[in-house]
Amino acid sequence: MPDQSADRIGFRALCLRGLAYLLLIAALLQGVLYEANQLGVMRFSESGFTEIAQTLLLLGATALVLMTRRLDHQWPHVTLLLLGLLGASLIREQDAWLDAYVFDGAWELLVTLLVVPILLIVLRGRLSFAAELERYAATFSGGLFAAGFLATYVFSRLYGRSDLWQAILGEHYLRIVKDAAEEVTELFGCTLLLLAMLELWLMVKRRQRRAAN
C-alpha cells in the first residue's frame, strides 16, 4: 500500500503551484485574445492558437502519464486508461490533418487501434482497476482529472451547441461566437487534464523520495 501521506501538498508548495497554474491560464487566455484580434479568418480554426494550444496541452498530458507509468507501478490499470483517453483525444485533435493528408477517417482507425486493446486489458483486470481508481479518485490529481474530463468532453460540447447560441444571439447569431465559446472551454478543460497529469507525476515523485528516506 503506498504512503498516503505523500498525497499531501505543503502549504508553500500549494501556493507556488497555484500561482504557476494561474499564470498558465492567464497566458493561454492572452493567446486567445491575440487570436481574436489578429488572426482574421484563421480565428478558432484548426490553424488558430486555441486549437494548437489544445494539441500541445494534450501532448504534454500524454507524455506525463507515460513518464508516470515508467516511474511507478502502483497504478498500472488507471495510468493505462488515462493514456488511452489522452492519446485518443490527442489523435482526435488532428482529425482535419489526418483526413486531409492520410485518408478520410484515419483518426477514427487510429483511435480504435489505441483504445480497444487498452479497454480489453482494463476490463480483464477490472477488480484491480476498481481498487486503483478508488485510490486515484481521492487524490488532487483525480479531482483535477474529473473536472478536466467533464469540461472537455461534456460541458464544452453542450455549451458549444449551435441551437444554444442561436437562442442567445437570435438574429445576431455568428458561428464564430459559437466556435469561440466551445474551443475556449475545451482549452480550459485540456489545461486541467495537463495539470492533473502533472500532479500525478509529482505525487509519484514525492512517494519515491519518501520511500528512499
Rank of each mutant, 00 (worst) to 15 (best):
D3N: 14
S5Q: 15
A6M: 07
R8W: 14
I9P: 01
F11W: 08
A13T: 13
L19C: 01
A20T: 02
A20R: 10
L22K: 01
A26G: 02
L28M: 11
G31L: 05
Y34L: 09
Y34G: 04
N37V: 11
V41M: 11
S45R: 15
G48Y: 11
F49C: 03
T50V: 15
E51I: 07
A53H: 15
T55Q: 15
L58A: 04
L59V: 13
L59G: 13
G60A: 09
A61P: 06
L71M: 12
W75R: 04
L81N: 01
L82F: 09
L86R: 07
R92K: 03
E93D: 13
E93W: 11
D95N: 09
D95Y: 08
A96Y: 12
W97V: 09
L98V: 12
V102G: 07
F103K: 04
F103Y: 15
G105D: 08
E108N: 08
E108I: 13
L109H: 08
L110P: 06
V111Y: 15
L113P: 02
L114V: 03
V115P: 09
P117H: 01
L120S: 07
L120Q: 04
I121S: 14
G125M: 12
G125E: 08
L133P: 03
T139A: 01
S141N: 02
G143S: 13
A151D: 00
R157E: 02
Y159P: 00
G160R: 11
Q166E: 02
Q166D: 07
E171S: 13
E171M: 14
I176P: 03
I176D: 07
I176N: 08
K178P: 01
A180W: 12
V184A: 03
T185V: 11
E186W: 06
L187C: 00
F188S: 04
C190H: 06
T191I: 05
L193E: 05
L195M: 00
M203P: 01
M203S: 12
M203T: 09
V204Y: 04
R207G: 01
A212T: 06
